[in-house]
């Protein structure tokens, strides 16, 4: 009876969010007096999977079926269900990603489990009952949810849990086959198109984000955002009005009906701070607001602020970051 964690891999590497998931699962396993086993999905290498020992994982199950490199809901669900049965896992932990939520919701039905998504803390364990804190109302609140099913599935929000790094520990990688058939690949992608990311930092995985609003006045000024993001190693994002008028692609839209981010640092440039935007960012650890309007509501939600013209302030910030070395 181990805890099963689902680790998503991309281009051979375990995603940062999955290192957090592995650490979460290992801590739950420790609390339950058992071990944590991982099952890998996506394009993985055995060497990188073995390193999950640093996050407290003892064993990794890996199906080297080439069609599992891309996300397929049907096949991933069957693979993880088979791993859960093999390990007799009562607790399954995955990332609160598009993949994790798609698979987790099917698994909940298949395994008759209680599911909580968007979870931000380790569970409080009371006998067979878990209570988990999860984000609700699009970042405007939290809910403590009781999972009373015999099996529990927890989808962990990115950047909520610190990844463990116990140097030198390695996990045993074991080949595993879920006996997948063609029918399990009904929703296999015909084509996968990855975004061309400035600086290569994906917004959902980023721990620093530089975001622009209408105060940037036009898409031609976005180099100011990109320069600061590049200097900081941050991803770029935008507010809803900006993606609505196509200055920036919709996948950069952060807010209530866009994506919710919780980076360590969120720098908002020329964004007034409508309640719908705040909902998408208010679980960021540190919020910086740059706006020429001292009355902008965003300042009330900020840790640091500069009342000033973004066109003057941004180059100064980029310069200062470069000088830090």
């Amino acid at each position: 009876m181990s805890v099963l964690v689902v680790v998503e891999c991309d281009k051979g590497e375990v995603k940062k969010s999955s290192l957090e998931v592995a650490s979460y699962g290992a801590q739950v396993a420790q609390a339950l007096g058992t071990t944590a086993t991982a099952v890998a999905v996506g394009e993985a290498t055995e060497a990188n999977l073995a390193k999950l020992g640093e996050q407290g994982i003892s064993k990794v199950l890996f199906d080297n079926e080439p069609r599992l490199k891309d996300f397929v809901n049907g096949a991933y669900t069957k693979l993880i269900a088979a791993a859960a049965d093999k390990e007799q896992a009562k607790v399954i932990v995955l990332a609160n990603s598009n993949i994790g939520a798609s698979v987790g919701s099917r698994l909940a039905v298949r395994l008759k489990a209680s599911l909580a998504t968007n979870v931000v803390e380790l569970p409080k364990i009371d006998g067979g009952q878990f209570t988990v804190k999860r984000g609700a109302f699009s970042g405007k609140a939290f809910a403590d949810v009781v999972l009373s099913g015999e099996r529990k599935i927890i989808a962990v929000k990115k950047n909520s849990i610190e990844a463990l790094h116990n140097g030198g520990q390695t996990a045993q990688v074991e080949s595993f086959s879920a006996q997948l058939s063609d029918a399990d690949f009904a929703d296999a992608p015909k084509q996968v198109i990855m975004q061309d990311q400035a600086g290569g930092i994906l917004l959902p995985e980023a721990d620093k984000v530089v975001s622009g609003g209408r105060g940037m006045k036009g898409p031609e000024n976005w180099h100011l955002i990109e320069d600061l993001a590049k200097a900081l190693g941050a991803a770029t994002a935008c507010s809803k009005p900006v993606s609505d008028v196509d200055w920036r692609p919709h996948h950069e839209h952060v807010g209530q009906t866009g994506i919710t981010v919780s980076p360590n640092l969120y720098i908002a440039c020329g964004i007034s701070g409508a309640i719908q935007h705040l909902a998408g960012v208010n679980s960021s650890k540190v919020i910086v607001v740059i706006n020429k309007d001292p009355e902008a509501p965003f300042f009330k939600a900020a840790d640091y602020g500069i009342v000033g013209d973004v066109f003057e302030v941004l180059p100064k910030l980029t310069q200062a970051v470069k000088e830090l070395g």
Binding site: S114, A136, G139, D144, A301, A302, G305, G308
Partner: peptide, 25 residues
């Protein structure tokens, strides 16, 4: 299959620390 035991609002921010625009660095 699940039940909400309690809701909570996010902790309030301490208040914003303002830095003059001339000293943005």
């Amino acid at each position: 299959a699940t039940a909400v035991a309690e809701y909570a609002l996010p902790p309030k921010k301490q208040g914003v620390k303002l830095i003059p625009a001339e000293q943005a660095g």
